[in-house]
């Protein structure tokens, strides 16, 4: 649905970086690994939160 606020495994706040990551790597054409490095999302537990996330609000909202 929405990006989780924190990493499930280590508890670091990752929601903070989602919009920039989305704009640059998911919708833009930058290398996701480089964007995550620049954002300071270093651990692989936090990186998978960002890489594997899909926003579903647009999908769900018509069925209110």
């Amino acid at each position: 649905m929405m990006i989780p606020v924190r990493c499930f495994t280590c508890g670091t706040v990752i929601g903070e970086h989602w919009e920039e990551f989305k704009a640059r790597a998911k919708e833009g054409d930058e290398d996701p690994a480089k964007v995550l490095d620049e954002l300071g999302v270093d651990r692989h537990c936090c990186r998978r939160m960002m890489v594997s996330h899909t926003d579903l609000v647009d999908v769900v909202s018509p069925y209110q």
């Binding site: 929405m2 990006i3 606020v5 706040v13 929601g15 903070e16 970086h17 989602w18 919009e19 926003d55 609000v57």
Partner: peptide, 9 residues
Amino acid sequence: ADENIPIIE
């Protein structure tokens, strides 16, 4: 502490 965390769209 962080101001850019999306709560809900």
